[in-house]
Simulated scan of single mutants.
Amino acid sequence: MELRGILHGLTHQYHGKDQPVDYYLQLGEERLPLNELLGSEITISFLGEKNCIACGRKTNKTFNSGYCYPCFTKLPENDLCIVKPHECHYDQGTCRDASFGETHCMIPHYVYLAVSSDVKVGLTRKNNQLKRWVDQGAIRAIPIAEVPTRRMAGELEFHLSQFLPDKTNWRKMLKGDVREVDLLSLRDEVYAHFPDEFKAFRYREDEWIDITYPILESLDKINSLTLDKQESVGGKLIGVKAQYLIFENGVFQARKHAGYQVQVSASA
């Protein structure tokens, strides 16, 4: 099997806690199903060209996982407030694209607890939570607040990050080095740290979501594979988690290489 195209990272589909997430490697408009390739030899080769995933122009360097520099500096999805939502400036009239702000930011968001490497606090658009949790490699997650806007979610997340991490240790996440956590009990402890103005937005689910990943075996040592240092990467595929392909000899972060023109070969 052989495919060529612009890499766009991994897409996935969640089927419930008792079934592993279905993963696909997105190459342009084509999707390569990865679950059925577990145990196979896969080679990803860089073809020497990078293209912006937004406008398609050729670029020597990509920014923020696949954008050319003009799109990085102009598109609203690349604004600083995306990674620092508590600094959202939509109300100041300086949003890069007001229509983007209305459809992506001025809508309900969840603040959540997730277990990936350890427990972390995060935020996501309502109805986007499963995609967010899988992209982070979370094995367990639960929403703890529903607020009207992204900025409010960012303010609550920023406040709670004083008591909980808001980052994932990707090496521990890939090793499966994760402690068992009762998220319902922890949620009640976290509620004690809610500022008064956010207490009315507390969100109570009866149970958390468990997520299982397609992994044959775990690595003892995490070695990062990159097409910036090698013309090709790959080996026997033993798992997929978050945005990583896990090979016997290391891990490949697919989204980091978005925009790269690649050839993907797979054999049993």
Score class of each variant (00 low, 15 high):
65 S>E: 03
22 D>W: 06
42 I>F: 00
85 P>A: 09
30 E>C: 12
36 E>S: 15
74 K>Q: 12
23 Y>H: 11
30 E>A: 12
21 V>L: 07
28 G>Q: 08
61 K>F: 14
42 I>E: 00
32 L>R: 07
34 L>G: 04
66 G>L: 02
73 T>I: 14
63 F>G: 05
72 F>W: 04
83 V>L: 03
41 E>D: 00
29 E>D: 13
92 Q>Y: 15
81 C>H: 08
70 P>N: 07
25 L>S: 05
57 R>I: 13
41 E>M: 00
80 L>Q: 07
92 Q>M: 15
79 D>L: 09
90 Y>R: 03
49 E>M: 06
66 G>F: 04
24 Y>L: 08
29 E>G: 09
29 E>S: 12
33 P>Q: 11
68 C>K: 02
71 C>S: 05
64 N>R: 09
25 L>V: 12
49 E>P: 06
45 S>P: 00
71 C>F: 04
57 R>E: 10
40 S>D: 09
81 C>G: 03
47 L>C: 00
88 C>P: 10
42 I>R: 00
74 K>S: 14
49 E>K: 11
46 F>N: 00
54 A>K: 04
40 S>Q: 01
59 T>R: 02
58 K>E: 10
49 E>H: 08
33 P>S: 11
50 K>H: 06
34 L>K: 01
24 Y>N: 10
38 L>Q: 06
